[in-house]
Structure formats: structure tokens, C-alpha cells
Design a protein around this nucleic acid. Structure first.
Length: 947
RNA sequence: GGGCGAUUAGCUCAGUGGGAGAGCGCUUCCUUCACACGGAAGAGGUCGCAGGUUCAAUCCCUGCAUCGCCUACCA
């Protein structure tokens, strides 16, 4: 005896089934699967993360695909994991420490990292748990972490290979620096934001003899503090105002230095005064100008955002913004400040902590990107990799063309430490000892300031001179960068002594790699590379990558580059780029805006199934999703509908043959064959749409089928049989009901795993899971049944609509007549008369007979039939006449337009014959309808005059 | 500045070179034995504006407007 609860309550069953699936190993690749392997690697969420809408959409789509592929017979692996998220995680733990009043430097590197691991063990599993809540069918036995041993080995291997090929190198150049995180950032990690600042105009006096009016040049800047590092003023070479003074010197205020006026075409003479201060050490454009003119770079700001020793005694050690104020004051006092005005400009911020970034001159590691990028472009061009929707291709190409070398070193502790060492005790190739050169730059400000040491170059030796030991310097240094002049030793294994001279003083480069470096290896490192594992052979390249466009460049492009470079094959065939989930007003959801909808709250409220179905239905290609809770509620109703349909079907369990349906098709009545045909059509559509990543279309076609075809029509058609039919008739219908229900829940399973599993287990199989059943495919169709049912449905709809429009009480049984254009249609009607009568509450229906002759009747024209209903005494005649007249005038308009069209010779000559025929038929139809309406009006008027 | 996308029913959004769609909301009727988280019948749109191509444009092209996103620059 099958028993279903009165209503479906997700909270009672979701966790139970999840555990059941996992314990039975259904998430693991099925070794007996016959079809090709299919693998998805999850975009690893940050360990610090908690599930947001983006993750939910992302995971739902992947789960739909994996469940579908699994049921379709593929060997499926969905490989999960998390990302160590260097800066983000370090920030989280640092914040925690600061509550205890501890600075990470006090703890020291090793202790700090231990602390982060501890944090990870405690809180890092949160997002995994949340993914399980929404039903993600990941193989958790293969879960990876970007910092685990295997992945770290992969990172070292790739780094060393690229190093050996000369594709990673060090350089001293301007980079984006976050003074709060104390690290370099890649261009992508900088977010630009419009803010209101001030534009200051500063006078730079011309060194006498004066050759220009007023004796000075005015330059404009939003960052006056950088003027301390100016090494030139640039003007456009053809600017008449300044032609005479190019090559002359200016007195740089507040510094006592003299700087030249140079000519450079990059200067826009129309902007401001047409003269630009040039600060090669703190501005990207100025750096370029500086290179062209071989200017010196003077770094006046140091890594923590304070002014460096180079800024001069008066300013060094000041915070950059305090210094800005002070400089403005000082300039004003010297009468060198011409003015200031409010100014809106965009300023780079750190994407992790929102601090304003500072361009700084530092030594960093880079990946030479050009050759990698061109391979990655080719892979997309020749369709080795498909971007879906393909509108992203242009974006991708544009970005890849302009790509700059990738800065991969970060001055933090949490991450993959760069596998590079150097030895301070070895002699250089020319025989001179590298001592004093080995460490080019130490961030060691208090000591430096006290000792009056300049911020760049030779600090190590300066500190040594002060009597500090090697160990002391290393220990107390916040940031060390090994000099470019020293040849690094790059290798896969840990180094404890110098391989050349055996010295134990060996120093490892303290920098770690950009988090995205390890993410870039994710599709193969997770499968076991660099080892030749079975998984790697089976699942690489993976099938599809599902991701949002926000990390297309951060991650996808880099995976493509690394995959092609290291594996000699693209990491995936398809990249499905889904929408960004926004709030109902179209804004990005963010904590600071307070417009975040928590997926877990949605799951609690509506169940994971309804929530997932909503996301799928929203996931139209190429557009952002504006999430609205109403939709979730709507789909929860859908689940309820499904549940109740199942309940209805289960009520008839006794006569269920529990046999496969096929082979017995001929026993089925017309509605039965019709619903099977519709089912076949739906299954075909769902399979096709899933194959094309059209999740919304797939979801909608099942929805439409279940509710508006299966429930609204088929179940209603079965009722007369179930209540009054013979036991053979009943058995056939019941078998069909169970069969269709089974296929429905299978079709729905990828979208709604929980409720379908619950139904499957209670109704169909007791032990096995729906997860491992066969997804519906290639079901038989019955086109004739579909055609015939269309007539019946339109007859029923026609009668109902007259009923509704004429306000005939539902309880009132009535008579109707149906006249059709063909004998076949009439036969179909006659064969299904009982059902039609039941569904329309007619006590008598005459097929083919014209009952107008007996009494006045309302007439409705539908498709190929006319429907008559005696109207005497049934309606409000006056308003009905009004309505009909309105409708008539509408039809008159349509007839006029069509008539014009059909008299148009060009149309008749050029339009396809089918179209012309269609239009003609439409015209006839309208004329016919008009006649009937006129008849009705006449009739009503006669009736009303009698009353 | 460059690029991309959007503009369709009250709201959220699908869609197509030849009949304007869905969900929610709304109106009317129905507590009929799966389901009121329901059923039936309806109302509601010059498919942003202006041109062009075509026998035919909501769809293709051009321009404009509004909104959004990406990207570069902003001395």
C-alpha cells in the first residue's frame, strides 16, 4: 500500500535523501557506465566564502548537468573543492588576530600559517555544507583544496617548468600596491571607482633666468604628495606656450631639486595648463614617459602607505594623506598653490579590502603571457573551446589581445610560497661576493628611519653595518625581495642548504603566488597531475566549465592558457557562462548594499527543489538574473501540484499492473495515446534544451507539460473512466498514469532531486535510487492522437467559454450542439462524447445536428467546428450584445487589413505559397466568425424583444 | 573615450522575418470526491522613439533616447 503524506514538506526529507545518495556512492563515477566520461570541475569557492546566489545558480546548473548526464548513461564526475583565497583568507584571520590585539608579524610566519590552517579546519567547511544543502551531487571523496599537498606539487611543477623556459621572470616595475594588505595586486585585482577628490594647481618656478610670463609653470595634480618624486615636467612638443622652455630647468618646490621640462606627445595640450608633472615611481603614464626620456624614478611612498625617507626629512614617515595636507599647506604658505577645485575621477581600490591602491616601484615575479595568450585565443577561434553564449567571444578576444604580463607574486604569507632560493654566501660568477646585494629591499621602517637609510637599494648591507646579524634582519623584515642581480635557484623540492657551497644561510623568496595561479591549474591538478592517474586519463579534458562572467579573465582565460601549455590540450570543451544574479532592481547583490538574498533562507522557506527550479527557470542565456521571491513561491506551488497528482494516481494502486507500458499501446484510449505522445515530445525537448544549455526552456517545457497537459487535461480525462469505466478500461488508464508519472519525475529529477527521489521511492522502487535510473529518451509519438485530441480540447474549451461568457451557472446542466467540417472529426467527437460531456457539464450533446432550428442558440466558432448552446433565459442580453458588437468591430478591422494584403499583387507574387494560403484561410475564418457574431446579435435582440 | 547588452502585459522576464507569450498580480465564477499551494472563464501590450530594407518588421539595418555592464584614461 503506497501512502503519500497529505502535503509535501521538504524539510522532512531533504537531508535524509542526501545522506542516502552519498552513502550509496551514487555521486561517484559509475564504473559500469557505457557512455563517454563526463567531468565538471567546480569553480572552487573561497574557503572564507559562504554560499551566495551566484554560487547557488552556479551549483544548480552543474548539478542539473551532472544528474542528467549520469542518468543518460555517462560516466560522470563532478569534482568539488575550495580555494585557499590568499589575500581574502589572510585578511580574515588577521582581523581575528587584531581583536586579540595581535599583529601577524608578532606571531611570525610559521605560527601565523598554522593559525590559518586552524581557522580553515574550523570554519572552512561551511560552504561545502551549504552546497550539500542545495543537493549538489559532487563526489566528495575526491574533494580538493588548492593548498593541499597534491595541488601544491602541481603548482611547484608548473612554476619550475615555466621558470626553466624563461616564461616566469622577475622585474622591477610599477605595480598596483595595496598599502593595507601589503602586497602587489594584478591589474585585474584593482577595482576602479568614481570618487570626488580635489585637483590642485601648483606653480613650479622656472629656474632663472625667467623666460615665461609670471616666471613659473602651473601643473595640476590630484595627488600633491607625489610631487616629491617628480623628475620632470612634460609638455606637448608642439605647444607654442612652452616651446621656448623645453629643456630648461624648474625648481621643484619643497625639495630643493631641479627638474627639466621635457617634450612628450602623450601630453594633451588641451587639458589643464598643458603641462604635466612626471612622477615615474608613482604613476603608470609617468613611468612610460620616464622610460622614454630616461628619467630617474624616485620612490617617495613606501609599502605601508607612508612617505619614505626619499620624501625628505620633513615628510618622511607621514601617512600619504596627512602628507598631502601638509604639502598643500606648505605650498600655500610659499604662495605656490594657485588653487584647487573639486574633481570627479576614478581611483583604483583593492578588490579585497577597498583601500586605495598606490602604484609602487617594486621587484615582482611575472608570467610572460604573450605566447600563452595567443594559443588560448587560437583554441577559441578554432572552436576547440566553445564559449556559450558565444557573444562572450569578442570580449575574450579583446581582453586577450591587450593582455599584459601577469604579476604573480604577492607579499603575503598564506599561499604557495615561491620555490626560489638564493645563497648569500656564494660568490657571484665574476668572483665577487653578493653580500649586500642579495636582498634589495627590506621593509623595515623603524630601523630605517632611525638610521636615516634610503628606502631603496642596499638596505641589507646598511643594516649589516649597523651590526644586525643576517638572522636578525630576516626575522625583523616585513618584506624582503631578493635582488634582481642574484641568480635564483628554482626547484621543486624544499632546499635547506646551498647546493653550491653548502651554506645554511640560504634564503627562500618570501613571496607567495597569486591565488589564481593555483586556480589556473585546477582542471588537471585536481585530477592528480603531475602524476599520470587513472582519473586524469579518464576525465581530462573535462566536459564543461560552468561559471559566471565575472571570473572569465581572472580564471577561465588563465585555465585555458595553462591547460594548453602544460597538458597540451584545452582543459574543457564548453564554457557555459551564466548570468549574474542581481536583486530585483538589477543591482549586484552585496553585503554593503544590504540587498543580499541568502540562498539558505530560500531553501528553508520553500525547499531546495523549488529554489533550484526557480534558478533554472531564470537561467536564460546572455542576460542577468533579477531574482524575485514570487517566482520561488510559484514553483513551490508546482511541486505541490505534482505531489497531489501523484497522490491521485496512487489512490488507484490496486489496479496497477506494474508492467512496462509498451506493447500495450493499442489498448489505450485516445487521451492515453495523446499524453504519451506529449510526454515523448516533452522528453525530446528537455533533452535537447539541456544539451544546448537552455535550462530555462527545459524547465518551462516540463512545467507546461506537467501542469497544463498532464494535470489539467489528462488526469481530468481519466476521471470519467476511473469512476465509471469497466475494470479493463480502468487498468489501462491506471497503467498509463503510473507510467507517465514515472517519466515525469525522472525528467524532473535533475531539477528537483529531492521530491522526485521521495516519489520514486514511495511509488516505484523501494531500494534503488532515481539517480541511477535511465533518463527518458526516444519515447514513441502518436501524431494522429495529438491531432484528434486538439479537436476535443477545442470543443470543450469552446463550450466552457460560451458558458463563462454567458454567465451560465456551473451547476446548471445544459445542452450543446457541435457541427464540424468533416466526418472524421465528428467520429472523434462521438467516440469521446462521455468525456466531453463530463468536462463541460452538458447533459446532452448533439454532434452534427443543428439544434438552432429548435431554439435560439449562441454560436461559437473554433477551429473546424461550430458550437451551439441554447440561450433562452440564461444571460444578461444587453451587455452581451455590447460585447459582441465590440468584438465585431475588431474583426471588421482585421478583415479590412487582411483584405488589403490579399489584394496586394506583390504579396501574392512573392510571399511563399504556404503563407498566402494561411492568410486566405485566416480571412475566411474571420468572415465566418463575423457572420456568426451577427447571427448571435440578431438572435439576442429577438430574444430580448420577447422578454 | 572604446566596446557590449537591454528597452515586449501592472511586476519579473521568455520569444520569433509571416498568427504577440509565460509566471506572478488583477477581474468574474466555482470550497465538484488529487490539489484553494486548486479549477474554469476573462481583462490587459502602437513589442523604447524615428527612419530604412522587404510583398511582409516586435525581430534585419541606421540614427536617437533611456538604463545597465565591461574596458581604458582622466595630469
Amino acid at each position: 500500500m503506497i501512502e503519500l503524506k497529505k502535503t509535501y514538506s521538504p524539510e522532512d526529507i531533504e537531508d535524509k535523501w542526501y545522506v542516502f545518495w552519498e552513502q550509496n556512492g551514487y555521486f561517484k563515477p559509475n564504473p559500469n557506465a557505457t557512455k563517454a566520461p563526463f567531468c565538471i570541475v567546480i569553480p572552487p569557492p573561497n574557503v572564507t566564502g559562504s554560499l551566495h546566489m551566484g554560487h547557488a545558480l552556479n551549483a544548480t546548473i552543474q548539478d542539473i548537468l551532472t544528474r542528467w548526464k549520469r542518468m543518460s548513461g555517462h560516466k560522470v564526475l563532478w569534482l568539488p573543492g575550495t580555494d585557499h583565497a590568499g589575500i581574502a583568507t589572510q585578511n580574515v584571520v588577521e582581523r581575528e588576530l587584531s581583536k586579540e590585539g595581535i599583529d601577524r608579524h608578532k606571531l611570525g610566519r610559521e605560527t601565523f600559517i598554522e593559525r590559518v590552517w586552524k581557522w580553515k579546519a574550523e570554519y572552512g567547511g561551511k560552504i561545502i555544507h551549504q552546497l550539500k544543502k542545495i543537493g549538489a551531487s559532487c563526489d566528495w571523496s575526491r574533494e580538493r583544496f588548492t593548498l593541499d599537498e597534491g595541488l601544491s606539487a602541481a603548482v611547484r611543477e608548473v612554476f619550475v617548468r615555466l621558470f626553466e623556459e624563461g616564461l616566469v621572470y622577475r622585474d622591477n616595475r610599477l605595480i598596483n600596491w595595496c598599502p593595507r594588505c601589503h602586497t602587489a595586486l594584478s591589474d585585474l585585482e584593482v577595482e576602479y571607482e568614481e570618487i570626488e577628490g580635489k585637483l590642485y594647481s601648483i606653480k613650479y618656478p622656472l629656474t632663472p633666468p625667467v623666460r615665461i610670463e609670471g616666471g613659473y609653470i602651473t601643473v595640476a595634480t590630484t595627488r600633491p604628495e607625489t610631487m616629491l618624486g617628480d623628475t620632470a615636467v612634460a609638455v606637448h612638443p608642439e605647444d607654442e606656450r612652452y616651446k621656448d622652455i623645453i629643456g630648461k630647468n624648474l625648481d621643484l618646490p619643497l625639495t630643493g631639486r631641479k627638474i627639466p621640462v621635457i617634450a612628450d606627445a602623450a601630453v594633451d595640450p588641451a587639458f589643464g595648463t598643458g603641462a604635466v608633472k612626471v612622477t615615474p615611481a608613482h604613476d603608470f603614464n609617468d613611468e612610460a614617459i620616464g622610460k622614454r626620456h630616461k628619467l630617474k624614478s624616485i620612490s617617495v611612498i613606501s609599502e605601508d602607505g607612508r612617505m619614505s625617507a626619499e620624501a625628505g626629512e620633513r615628510y618622511s614617515g607621514l601617512d600619504r594623506y596627512i602628507c598631502r595636507k601638509k604639502i598643500v599647506e606648505d605650498l600655500r604658505e610659499l604662495d605656490l598653490l594657485e588653487g584647487d577645485k573639486k574633481y570627479l575621477h576614478s581611483v583604483g581600490h583593492c578588490y579585497r579590502c577597498k583601500t586605495i591602491i598606490e602604484p609602487l616601484l617594486t621587484i615582482q615575479w611575472y608570467v610572460k603571457i604573450e605566447s600563452l595568450a595567443s594559443e588560448a585565443v587560437r583554441a577559441v577561434q578554432d572552436k576547440t573551446i566553445r564559449l556559450i553564449p558565444d557573444s562572450w567571444e569578442n570580449n575574450y578576444f579583446a581582453w586577450m589581445r591587450d593582455i599584459k604580463d601577469w604579476c604573480i607574486s604577492r607579499q603575503i604569507w598564506w599561499g604557495h610560497q615561491i620555490p626560489v632560493w638564493c645563497c648569500p654566501d656564494c660568490k657571484g660568477e665574476d668572483g665577487t661576493p653578493p653580500q649586500g646585494e642579495i636582498i634589495e629591499h627590506i621593509f623595515f621602517e623603524p630601523v630605517m628611519l632611525r638610521a636615516g637609510i634610503k628606502a631603496t637599494g642596499g638596505i641589507y648591507s646598511e643594516l649589516k653595518k649597523l651590526g644586525m646579524s643576517h638572522e636578525e634582519i630576516i626575522r625583523n623584515s616585513k618584506i624582503i625581495r631578493i635582488s634582481k642581480k642574484v641568480k635564483p635557484i628554482c626547484q621543486r623540492e624544499e632546499l635547506t642548504e646551498c647546493p653550491k657551497c653548502g651554506s645554511k644561510n640560504i634564503i627562500r623568496d618570501p613571496d607567495v603566488l597569486d591565488t589564481w595561479f593555483s586556480s589556473a591549474l585546477w582542471p588537471f591538478s585536481t585530477l592528480g597531475w603531475p602524476q599520470e592517474t587513472e582519473d586524469l586519463k579518464t576525465f581530462y579534458p573535462t566536459g564543461v566549465l560552468v561559471t559566471g562572467f565575472d571570473i572569465l579573465f581572472f580564471w577561465v582565460a588563465r585555465m585555458i592558457m595553462m591547460g594548453l601549455k602544460v597538458m597540451k590540450d584545452a582543459p574543457f570543451r564548453d564554457v557555459y557562462i551564466h548570468a549574474l544574479v542581481r536583486d530585483s532592481k538589477g543591482h549586484k547583490m552585496s553585503k554593503s548594499k544590504g540587498n543580499v538574498i541568502d540562498p539558505l533562507v530560500m531553501i528553508d522557506k520553500y525547499g531546495a527543489d523549488a529554489f533550484r527550479f526557480t534558478l533554472a527557470a531564470f537561467a536564460a542565456q546572455g542576460r542577468d538574473v533579477r531574482f524575485s521571491e514570487d517566482r520561488v513561491e510559484g514553483y513551490r506551488h508546482f511541486i505541490n501540484k505534482l505531489w497531489n497528482a501523484a497522490k491521485f494516481i496512487v489512490n488507484n494502486e490496486e489496479l496497477w499492473a506494474k508492467q512496462p507500458l509498451h506493447g500495450h499501446d493499442k489498448d489505450l484510449d485516445l487521451p492515453g495515446r495523446w499524453i504519451l505522445s506529449r510526454l515523448a515530445f516533452t522528453a525530446e525537448e528537455v533533452n535537447r534544451n539541456l544539451g544546448n544549455y537552455r535550462f530555462n526552456d527545459a524547465a518551462n517545457s516540463i512545467y507546461q507539460f506537467v501542469w497544463h497537459e498532464f494535470c489539467d487535461w489528462y488526469i481530468e480525462f481519466t476521471k470519467p473512466v476511473l469512476y465509471h469505466g469497466s475494470s479493463e478500461e480502468k487498468a489501462a488508464v491506471i497503467n498509463c498514469l503510473f507510467f507517465v508519472l514515472e517519466k515525469i519525475i525522472q525528467l524532473l529529477h535533475p531539477f528537483m532531486p529531492y521530491v522526485t527521489e521521495e516519489l520514486w521511492n514511495t511509488v516505484f522502487e523501494q531500494s534503488k535510487s532515481i539517480m541511477i535510473s535511465q533518463y527518458p529518451v526516444d519515447l514513441p509519438k502518436y501524431p494522429d492522437a495529438e491531432e484528434q485530441m486538439d479537436y476535443i480540447i477545442s470543443a470543450i474549451t469552446g463550450i466552457r467559454s460560451i458558458r463563462g461568457e454567458l454567465n451560465i451557472a456551473p451547476s446548471l446542466e445544459m445542452r450543446a450542439g457541435i457541427k464540424t467540417a468533416s466526418k472524421e472529426v465528428e467520429d472523434v467527437m462521438k467516440n469521446n462524447l462521455t468525456a466531453i460531456m463530463k468536462l463541460t457539464r452538458c447533459k446532452e450533446i448533439n454532434i452534427g445536428a443543428d439544434i438552432r432550428k429548435e431554439k435560439g442558440s449562441a454560436v461559437s466558432v473554433r477551429d473546424k467546428m461550430e458550437i451551439y448552446i441554447p440561450i433562452e433565459g440564461l444571460l444578461d442580453i444587453k451587455s452581451e450584445v455590447e460585447r459582441l458588437q465590440k468584438e465585431k468591430s475588431k474583426i471588421d478591422d482585421s478583415i479590412a487589413t487582411l483584405n488589403k494584403k490579399l489584394l496586394n499583387e506583390d504579396f501574392l507574387k512573392n510571399a511563399p505559397r504556404v503563407v498566402v494560403e494561411k492568410e486566405k484561410a485566416k480571412f475566411d475564418d474571420f468572415v465566418h466568425k463575423k457572420e456568426k457574431i451577427e447571427e448571435n446579435i440578431k438572435l439576442l435582440k429577438t430574444v430580448s424583444s420577447k422578454q
